[in-house]
Amino acid sequence: MKRRETLKTITLSSLGLAGLNPQVAEADKLMLPDEPVKVPGGRQKFEAIRDAKLKLDKFFTPHELQTVTILADIIIPADSKSGSASQAGVPAFIEFMMKDQPRMQTPMRGGLRWLDNQCTKRYGKPFALCPKTQQIEMVDMIAYPEQAKPEVSQGVAFFNMMRGFVATGFFTSKMGIEDIGYKGNTPNNWEGVPEDVLKQYGLSYDG
């Protein structure tokens, strides 16, 4: 097969719908009773049914979701290059992961409770209701593992987990992928490292 034909053979389904989430679309249809689950491309039937069920379920309370959203935007705020974690849909991703991998539920829910309890002791209010300066003061106590006091070690563990979720959620979103500058996932012809980059690193393909 010639290269041009190869590229023609690549189906529209794999190229055209990059901006949409077919699984979200399919799960939404499930809201209609008795509608059979339509299996999106690339999924097995049991996976499609499972995903659809998870979407209908709810994990976070409104208060928890609010706390998660505030933390997410503290961890990845908007800057001159891209938006914030919540603008990239990170809280919804974390919500889904709690249902998808239930072993994460207790560390997450418990961690949020730990945070609220600390804030109530220190400031008389749960984290989400504290003013920004107190929120940052609290986060500063748990965001730097090597400097944190031993009595907040559980908070450090929670914040590490949160940082991981937020980073993954943000940089696997459309916004985050553009931000990080990933250029692939598209048909192309690999001809090697660009000449200027080779030069920059003092490397070559000869010898």
């Binding site: 794999s14 998808d100 993954t168």
Partner: peptide
Amino acid sequence: QLKWPYESPRR
């Protein structure tokens, strides 16, 4: 093939 991470709800 050629799907993006955000086409999966679990990325």
